[in-house]
Write a protein that binds this DNA or RNA. Structure first.
Lengths: 227, 227
DNA sequence: CAGCTATTCAAGTAATCGCTTAAATAGTTT
DNA sequence: AAACTATTTAAGCGATTACTTGAATAGCTG
């Protein structure tokens, strides 16, 4: 308990926690976390989705694994990665909250790239839940099918945004449609709302994505067939 | 909305969030956050407490500020730094939770340095709250006086651990004493419990610190005189 | 067991990081 | 306005990082 020992203890324990910070210090790795928050994936899948080389993504995944943020398991010839625990998702969401609240650049980027977003107010989780209760909205999951299968808002329908134009007739025109996707920095729901409104539908965007909905303890479902 | 623009948007927005991760990627900076979670401080104070040069700490503080994690204000000749918002504290606690749950090295370090800790079970916040309600414990804040003044558990008494041996008679021997400090990786409460038990007191450690207590929305007080 | 394939590792390079020392700045106080 | 002082900045270093390319590994699958 003498002073030097105490300093060494502090140095070492904070250095350990800093390993986690370091894992969060690359935009590429945060993008991987965001993808893995939707569902588990193989290395090549992640490489394609992030437009990176397989070797590079593999190395990033090692960093994430050594920081305890992701887990992997073998499935046939592939190795599938996933978030190691819900507290990891919680950590990523906490970091995102700080960015949203404290970094002006993030707001600027969203404004610049998603020009329509500021015009249209988004639906909150509480409000959507109320609408669901009243049968007052169709909940539309516009993420890729496999992400829907791995888990979605209870009662939601799936039409991936890529298929929305061709499958738009599956949706009734009379009712309000609330579209959601991976999260507030995912563009799928914005695109979906644009397509729907263009076709004369009454569409709104949920202000967050599926992982946030689930972390709030709100009702979710998953495709029992898959997984 | 074409593919290349979308990739660029993702790259840029995740790079922005990564600035926050980078700020968390140094043990030294995490130590600063932990100190600032107790109360605001000047640069030299932080330098002394971390055994670092003033220039080095100043540079770390710039990194933290540019990531939106800390704020500063001038007070007389000094510049005082503080956490920028409660969500920053929330982020640090989320990171710590992940470390505790997922990094075996952290447990090893605690076991090695705080050998007694495993023997003695700690009191949880819920349990302490119950004890307070029943008048069933003395709550003892063993952090330095100024940290107590900046905020403490409602009803707690202050005896900094450095003064505990000389002031131990202020405490009644009949009642259970629950000591707390900065957090689970702070050694003050462990030291205090050791001193108290050695002197024949019935003492226990709270399993977290003041910032965690406050973030849970449990009752706190502050010294109105200071501030 | 041999062949195949997804994944990891290793080496190399340009850029960045943490810390030190020394000088500059900015703001208060006298 | 001058002097002082806390803080920031600049330059320099050794160590580390992100990514690429090319080779190695590990473990299914036929």
């Amino acid at each position: 308990m003498r002073a030097t020992g105490k300093r060494q203890f502090k140095d070492e324990i904070f250095a350990q926690f800093a390993r986690i910070g370091r894992a969060l210090s690359s935009g590429r790795r945060l993008e991987l976390l965001e993808l893995l928050a939707q569902r588990e994936r193989g290395v090549e899948e992640l490489a394609i989705e992030t437009s990176q080389s397989v070797a590079n993504i593999s190395q990033h995944l090692q960093v994430l694994r050594q920081a305890g943020l992701v887990d992997s398991r073998r499935q046939g010839n592939y190795i599938r990665y996933r978030l190691a625990a819900d507290i990891v998702l919680n950590l990523w969401l906490a970091l995102r909250d700080v960015g949203q609240a404290r970094l002006a650049e993030i707001d600027k980027l969203v404004q610049a790239f998603l020009k329509d977003r500021s015009a249209l107010e988004a639906v909150t989780c509480v409000e959507l839940q109320r609408r669901i209760k009243n049968g007052n909205a169709i909940v539309l999951d516009v993420r890729p099918e496999q992400e829907f299968a791995a888990g979605h808002i209870a009662g939601a329908r799936s039409i991936p945004v890529a298929e929305l134009r061709t499958r738009i007739r599956e949706l009734p025109k009379r009712r309000v449609i609330v579209a959601y996707c991976r999260g507030p920095y995912c563009v799928f729901a914005d695109q979906a709302v644009a397509i729907l409104r263009n076709a004369g539908y009454n569409a709104l965007r949920l202000d967050t994505g599926f992982p946030e909905w689930r972390m709030k303890g709100l009702p979710v479902e998953r495709d029992a067939a898959r997984m």
